[in-house]
C-alpha cells in the first residue's frame, strides 16, 4: 500500500470493498433523507405542473397583451427602482408581462414534453417488447430500425419537417415522438429479454395464453420500472429539443410564449438586458433537472443494484 503518496484512496477503496458490504456513511443517514433527490424533484415538478395548470389565475396579465409604453421594464431583482409592481419580473421588448409569459410557457413545455414522450413511448415500447420477446428476425428488424433512426441527425430532420408542415404544437409533438423512440426500444428490448425465460412467462405459455395477453399481463408489468425511468429521460429530452427548435425559429411559432422562443427573442437585447435570457433558460433548466432527478430517484428506488 503506497502510504507515502497522497493518493491512498484506491487502496482504501479495495480494502473497504473487501471488508464492508456497504459504506458506513449511508447507514447513519435517516431513511427518508436518502430519497431527498426524489422528494425534492417531485415537489419542484408538482409546483411547475400546478403553475402551468393555474396559469390563467396566477398570471397577473394576458401573456399576449403588448404595451409599447412598458417595454423592457426590469424585474425587481435586477433594478428595484425602475421596476413596477404590476410587472414583478419585468416586460419583454414588446411590453408583454414576463411573469405571465413564463407561466404560460410552462404549459407548452409540459404539453409537448409529455405527449412527445407518450408517442415515442408507444412506438419504442411496442418495438422493444416484440424484439425482446420473439428475438430472431423480429429482433434483427428492430435493431435495424434503431440503427437507422440513430444515424439520422435529429435536429436537422426535425427542423426540415417543421419547416414543411409548419410549427404547430401537434407537428412538434409528432416529429419529436417519431424521433425519440430509440432508447425506449433498446431498453425495453433488453428488459423483456431478461424476463422472457422466467417461470411465470413459461407458465402463461404452458396454459395457452395468447401472445398479446402474455405481453400485456405478464411482460409489461415486470418491465414497468425501466419504462418509467426512460419515460422521464425522454420527456426531458423532448422539452430540450422543443426549446432548441423554437429557439431556431422552426418550432413553436410566435406569439406563443415557448421558453425557447423567449430566449431567442431576448437574444437581441442580451447585452443590455441579460436577465431576459436568464429567466426562460433557467426555467427550462429547472424543469429538465427536476424530471431527470425524478427519473434517477425512481431508478434508485426500484433497482438499487443499478447504481454505478
Amino acid at each position: 500500500m503506497p502510504g507515502s503518496t497522497p493518493v491512498s484512496a484506491p487502496g482504501e477503496e479495495l480494502a473497504a470493498q473487501a471488508a464492508l458490504p456497504a459504506p458506513a456513511r449511508r447507514r447513519r443517514r435517516p431513511r427518508w433523507l436518502r430519497n431527498i433527490g426524489l422528494i425534492g424533484s417531485a415537489l419542484v415538478l408538482a409546483a411547475i405542473v400546478l403553475a402551468a395548470l393555474a396559469a390563467p389565475w396566477l398570471a397577473p396579465h394576458d401573456p399576449y397583451f403588448q404595451s409599447l409604453n412598458d417595454r423592457l421594464l426590469p424585474p425587481y431583482f435586477v433594478d428595484a427602482e425602475r421596476a413596477v409592481p404590476a410587472h414583478p419580473l419585468g416586460t419583454d421588448n414588446l411590453g408583454r408581462d414576463y411573469l405571465s409569459r413564463l407561466l404560460y410557457g410552462a404549459r407548452i413545455s409540459l404539453l409537448i414534453g409529455f405527449f412527445a414522450m407518450v408517442v415515442s413511448g408507444l412506438i419504442g415500447t411496442l418495438m422493444g417488447v416484440l424484439a425482446g420477446y420473439f428475438g430472431g428476425r423480429t429482433d434483427t428488424a428492430v435493431s435495424f430500425l434503431v440503427t437507422t433512426r440513430l444515424s439520422l441527425p435529429i435536429i436537422m430532420v426535425a427542423l426540415a419537417v417543421v419547416s414543411v408542415f409548419g410549427g404547430s404544437l401537434e407537428v412538434v409533438v409528432l416529429v419529436l415522438g417519431f424521433l425519440l423512440w430509440d432508447r425506449f426500444a433498446v431498453v425495453m428490448r433488453s428488459a423483456t429479454h431478461q424476463v422472457r425465460g422466467r417461470e411465470y412467462i413459461l407458465a402463461a405459455q404452458a396454459i395457452g395464453c395468447s401472445v398479446p395477453r402474455i405481453l400485456w399481463q405478464e411482460v409489461l408489468p415486470n418491465v414497468l420500472s425501466s419504462l418509467v425511468v426512460i419515460a422521464s429521460y425522454e420527456m426531458a429530452q423532448a422539452i430540450l429539443l422543443e426549446a432548441a427548435l423554437s429557439f431556431l425559429g422552426l418550432g413553436v411559432q410566435p406569439p406563443l410564449p415557448s421558453w425557447g422562443l423567449m430566449v431567442s427573442e431576448a437574444k437581441e437585447v442580451m447585452l443590455f438586458e441579460p436577465w431576459m435570457i436568464m429567466l426562460p433558460g433557467a426555467a427550462i433548466c429547472v424543469l429538465v433537472l427536476a424530471i431527470n432527478l425524478l427519473g434517477d430517484g425512481i431508478r434508485d428506488l426500484t433497482v438499487p443494484e443499478g447504481r454505478a
Partner: peptide, 22 residues
C-alpha cells in the same frame, strides 16, 4: 454532469457569449 445535461445547449452557448464575449 446532472446540471450539464439539463441545460439547453443554445442557452449555455449564449451564457458563454455573455461571459467571454460581451
Amino acid at each position: 454532469a446532472v446540471l450539464g445535461q439539463a441545460m439547453p445547449n443554445f442557452w449555455f452557448a449564449l451564457l458563454l457569449v455573455f461571459l467571454f464575449g460581451m
